[in-house]
Amino acid sequence: MAAHKDLLTFNKNGIYCSVAGVYIDPWRKVDKALITHGHSDHARSGSKSYICHKDTLPIIRHRIGKSIEARGIQYGEVFTINGVRFSFHPAGHIIGSSQIRVEYKGEVWVASGDYKIQDDGVCTPFEPIECHAFITESTFGLPIYSWKPIRETIGEMNTWWEANKSLGKPSIISAYSLGKAQNILHNIDKTIGPIYCHGAIIAMNKVLQEAGLFDCDILPVTDDVKNYGNALVLTPGSGINGPWAKRFKQASIGVASGWMNLRGARRRRGVDKGFVLSDHADWDGLNAAIKATGATKVVVTHGYQDIFTRWLCEQGYDAVSEKTLFEGEGSENAEH
C-alpha cells in the first residue's frame, strides 16, 4: 500500500474519509458527521448534519438538540457518498452503538467506536465485520482486565442489595445514565425491592422508552419518599458526592465500572463496593474482536494505546496508535 493514501485518517477534527468528505465521531464542528454512538465524547454538537443508527437518533436529539439535521439508518443498510459505501453494524456497547464499515474500490475499513463482546440483553450484540483495516478502542487494553460474565456481576449486585435491605440500608449504585444504567436495570432482580433513579437516568430512560427501545418500571427520587431502606438507587457518578445523596441515610454505595477490577481504583473512589461491569471489551475481548475481523492493519485509539499497539505489532499486525482529542491515558473518567 506504498503510495496509497489511507481510506480513513486522523486529523484535528476527527476520523476523516477524504474521498467522501465525511468525518466519523468528529470532535470539532464539521459539515457531515457519522456517529458511532450517543456518548458525549463521540457525538458532539455543532456539525451541520449527522448520520447515525436509527436507535442513536433519539439519543443525540435529546443530547445535542431537537433541531439538528440528522438521519437514522438500519444496521446493514448501505449508502454511498462519492463512490464510498458506508454501512452501520452492531457494536454491542450501548443502544444504537455501531461499527461503521467504509468500503472504497474493494478496500474495507471499520471504525468500531466503543464496543463490548458480551451480550447485555439490552442492545444488539457485537458482530465481527471482516475488513482490511480496523480502528479499535483500547480503554481496557491491559492483560489485567478480564470480565466475569455479566450475570455473575449482576448476581453480586443482587446479593449485596438483599444484604443491605435486611439491614434497612439503601443501596446506591453509581453508573452512567446511558448504557450502564440500562444494563443494570434490565438484568437486576427487580423482585428484591423498589428501584429509584436520579433525574438524569429518568430523563434518558424516558427518551429510550418513547422510542420503544427500553422499558423498565423505575421511580423518581423525590422529597415525598420517606424511606429508601429497601431500595436500589441508581445515579450517575456526579450524584454520589453531592447534596442529592445526603437523603439516603446509612446508604451502602457501589460503583459499577470496569475500573473496579483494580483495588487501587476502588480505594480511590472510597466506595463500599465495586462491581466490575463494563460496556467495553476486556483484554481477551479486544484481542478476539481484532482477530475476528481478519484485518492486517489496526489503528488503536483511546485507552492504553501505546502499550496495546506495541503488543499488536508483536502479534504480527501492522498496528499504529492515534490519539483522539478528548481522551487521556487511562483516564478513569473516560469509560463511557
Binding site: L142, I144, R263, G264, Y304, I307
Partner: peptide, 24 residues
C-alpha cells in the same frame, strides 16, 4: 503467555505487584 515488557508496563499502571500477578 505475555512478554515481560507488557507485564512491567501493566504493573506500573496497576501499581501493586501482588494484584497485577493475581489478575494477569
Amino acid at each position: 503467555g505475555i512478554p515481560l515488557w507488557l507485564f512491567e508496563e501493566t504493573y506500573h499502571i496497576a501499581g501493586d505487584l501482588a494484584e497485577t500477578i493475581a489478575l494477569i
